[in-house]
């Protein structure tokens, strides 16, 4: 058993007086796929936003790839460069073309030569099947295409870990599949992934482990088969009965 690539110990987070995350313990090994589910407001998004420090935690430790997340901005930037993230609202840069969206960070953060970055971007866009849209602007693409571009953009940084924050929640039903397909391909390629989602079909297909969160706590953490076959806590059973 290898060392965990993400190690969270006793992590607590407050928004003002309100405690969003309570005593989180989580270890993620390399190449594992974790699905995080739970009702809205349970802190799932906050949890994965803490992993690349888009949110600060107040107590406990988070160690990503051997580096602890602290105030040190250089460390944080280094970690963010190797942790890709995909958002619910895509968050593509609307003033840049699809290709420029993908090459911006490799060129300026990783100092990659422009030619090389463009080749890499085209390869990643090919993977998510939107290479023919490379010269268009985000506003001209459908939601599904935008989200696939967002995945390609994150992959262009050649990350070790990918975080997905409800990637399909803002999409029309017929576009969900194309995004999920891209994610399944990525999972099969062996990427370490943490996915916050309500798509239980996706969880069953690719996840190694499922985490169920409620009220800022990890209620249940189990192997995928185990989780769906016989959930332990009543809260999980109730949630699954409503969502399946």
């Amino acid at each position: 058993m290898s060392d965990p690539i993400i190690k969270i110990e006793g992590m607590n987070k407050w928004f003002g007086d309100f405690q969003v995350l309570k005593d989180i313990h989580l270890e993620v090994e390399k190449n594992k796929k974790i699905v995080v589910c739970g009702p809205s407001g349970s802190g799932k998004s906050t949890l994965i936003r803490c992993i690349n420090r888009l949110e600060e935690h107040q107590k406990g430790t988070i160690i990503v790839d051997g580096t602890e997340l602290t105030e040190n901005t250089k460390n944080i930037e280094a970690i963010r460069a190797e942790v890709g993230m995909v958002f619910q609202q895509f968050n593509l840069f609307p003033h840049l073309s699809i290709l420029d969206n993908c090459t911006l960070a490799p060129i300026w953060v990783k100092k990659m030569p422009k030619k090389e970055a463009e080749e890499l971007a085209m390869k990643q866009l090919e993977q998510v099947q939107i290479s023919d849209q490379a010269q268009k602007f985000p506003g001209q693409l459908s939601g599904g295409q935008q989200q696939r571009c967002a995945i390609a953009r994150a992959l262009c940084m050649e990350p070790k870990i990918m975080l997905f924050d409800e990637p399909t929640s803002a999409l029309d039903p017929e576009m969900i599949k194309e995004v999920l397909d891209a994610m399944v391909n990525l999972a099969k390629a062996g990427m370490t992934m943490i996915v916050v989602t309500h798509e239980m079909g996706f969880a069953k297909e690719v996840a190694d482990e499922v985490i169920f969160m409620d009220e800022g706590m990890i209620v249940e953490k189990a192997d995928t088969k185990e989780f769906f076959a016989n959930p332990k806590s009543d809260r999980t059973k109730l949630f699954l009965s409503q969502i399946l």
């Binding site: 936003r49 690349n52 888009l54 901005t73 930037e77 280094a78 963010r80 460069a81 190797e82 942790v83 890709g84 993230m85 958002f87 609202q89 968050n91 593509l92 840069f93 911006l104 960070a105 300026w108 953060v109 990783k110 967002a150 953009r153 994150a154 940084m157």
Partner: peptide, 15 residues
């Protein structure tokens, strides 16, 4: 500007 633009830029490792 929506906060997502800041999030996206940060998540790509930009200072």
């Amino acid at each position: 500007l929506p906060r997502g633009q800041y999030d996206a830029a940060k998540s790509l490792g930009m200072g």
